[in-house]
Design a protein around this nucleic acid. Structure first.
Lengths: 212, 212, 212, 212
DNA sequence: CATGAATGAGGGTTCATTCAT
DNA sequence: GATGAATGAACCCTCATTCAT
């Protein structure tokens, strides 16, 4: 790719028409990504898939990277909003929390979510991995990591009020790390999700227990 | 990239001179990878960084992919040989094993190994992630994953003799997953290794306990 | 060269503009071929000669071979359509045919056609010879040879009804061979056409007489 | 290729050793040419086939073209010496000559020579055609053509003493042209030689009769 | 706004030729 | 002399980006 200029959207999709175009482009990009992978992604293919001209693409995005960035950011937002289920913790004691932890994890790691890792998830992971090659996307990724970890840490802080922020951040970081690892294993299709949920939850619990 | 030919080294570095050249090329490649990412890796840059001509590069490697493969494979071999410490389990009962597990993990996760995640390790992880986009390297990666998991499973089988191979493989897969996650966090420099070792070991233990 | 993909024109020159571009490229290719030979033909030179960019060339042809193919095919078509004059034989007896053969050959080998072997013809012959090294063009050439010979044989079959197809094909092959030789001599400029027409026609007649 | 410098042999093979080396190189080149064609010919392959180093090749030939030139010239000399059979005409009248012409042609076009177009002949023709792509070899070819035609014309001059040199040259040129065409047909394997000899000889005779 | 032809730098790779050993 | 590693120009081709229409 080797893109240099600003990578922001060239215009706010203030008009309905524009919004639709942006959507169309993003959708097409996702499709091309799924079909041909990151190194098979080209503006020509995106435009063709979207049924527009390459020139039009540049009316809505300053360059190719911006398109991928948009997709990537949206994907990361999904992850954040997904996590908020875990994080929405009403005030409770550590004891109460630990007692309900299992249920809580069950609610988060529903079999449905993992039983059939939908193409969507497969795509997200694909994208996620692929992003490693674009240096410019690293900062987004790092910011995202920080966001996620903060969200988790804030949630845990409501329960483990005596823990230092450092500790909470550390544990959150680790939790997110093994969560991602779990995701990757499932998406890679190495193991089925159901039997793997047990060790995963045990690991999560064990890690959180270090905060007690 | 899309390379088709054989991607083995073009000649055995039988002579001292050749060996040095290969080293020089691999070193240069690592440097370019670190600086410009996979996306920015080109044979021209490698040659420039190594202070040789592009033609010379092709005297030692049949194509670009082969260079990356060489680096990648070496990196994976390191991982395997590293793991063998964990795997060398003398016959013992589950009880004995669980008792010594903590010591065992301490021996594996020595602070020295992680205290200063050397630039080398940082690079390896970079590479590791990046490889996801090259289909031909995926095979290597998947084979590696299988190797690692088998090594682990075989080790655990000596202790958990009653467990089904499936179960052992599953747990091993997961263990390797969170091991990698732990690695990545440390290499990314998000957390220091020492305090993170505690939750990580707890997680490992918890997962292994599911085999009891 | 060694080109693999499809070697057809990338787009129908439906628009006037495209047609002009294709023409420009073909013209430039002819010029480069005449100046530097097949050996010196490169996409860069073609583009430079045509006053376009290398990229543009690939908008109209999928690869270098396709450009040469286009020129070559056009050249072969000319040959075929040229021959149709000879082939348009109304039903007649062998005696009648042999009597009119000389006239017939006169009509085919008009002095105008050969008096000024235009640069175009010179080029075509150049190309014709040169093509022998490109395997993919050989097929075209062989197919062309078969077409020409069939056309001739079918023509002769109308007169020499008792001859075996084998014989007709053999004689046609030979006739085409010496026709080409005649062409080459004239194009090479070794001899003037007018005086050479006499032995050539004698040879043609003598060969055809073997069918009587 | 694109070779520019002098294309003469770098040294006279004064010493026995040198002569052997030159032979070895030429033999290897022929083998590579037969196997991989002109566009597959490289100094590396020649050296490998000859069992020497590329450097050594340049001790005996200034560049790649010189090697091909050497082979080509040798090949052309063979053609000349072959023709001398036809040309060695004792003084005789036109009548005598025409009477013996058929025998003469029989002696030249022996079935053995053509029945099994030996690999050698196949190679020569291959080379012959291939040379069309090397502008530098054209002059050799043209000189050769002139030589051959002169040889023929001189031979015919002994019989057709009243003919103008121009006429003799013209007829010789044409005779050589159709001779070459005949050769090509046989080498291409389109027709078997035996039945084709009849029309070919008829054509030769018819052409020579124009001198009467 | 939309188009898509045109651009041209840059990609991977080859190979004739040289030169230190 | 012989070697073969090293060179680097040149090869064919792609693709992000621009701009005249």
């Amino acid at each position: 790719m080797a893109v240099k200029r600003n990578t922001e959207s060239r215009k706010q999709p203030s008009q309905e028409r524009s919004k639709k175009m942006v959507e169309k482009i993003l959708k097409a990009t996702r499709e091309v990504l799924l079909k041909d992978g990151v190194d098979g992604l080209s503006t020509r293919k995106i435009a063709a898939q979207a049924g527009i001209s390459t020139g039009s693409l540049y009316q809505y995005f300053p360059n190719k990277l911006a398109v991928v960035k948009a997709i990537y950011s949206a994907c990361l937002e999904d992850v954040i909003s997904d996590l908020e289920v875990l994080v929405d913790i009403p005030p409770m004691s550590i004891g109460e929390f630990m007692e309900t932890l299992d249920t809580r994890l069950d609610r988060f790691y529903t079999p449905e979510k993992y039983s059939e890792s939908s193409p969507d998830r497969a795509f997200e992971l694909e994208l996620f991995k692929a992003m490693n090659i674009f240096k410019e996307l690293r900062e987004i990724d790092e910011q995202h990591e920080r966001n996620v970890v903060n969200v988790l840490a804030n949630g845990l802080a409501k329960v483990f009020v005596d823990q230092s922020p450092d500790n909470l951040l550390r544990v959150s970081t680790y939790l997110y790390g093994i969560h991602t690892a779990f995701d990757e294993i499932l998406v890679a299709g190495i193991c089925e999700s159901a039997p793997l949920l047990i060790p995963h939850k045990k690991a999560m619990v064990a890690v959180i227990q270090t905060l007690e």
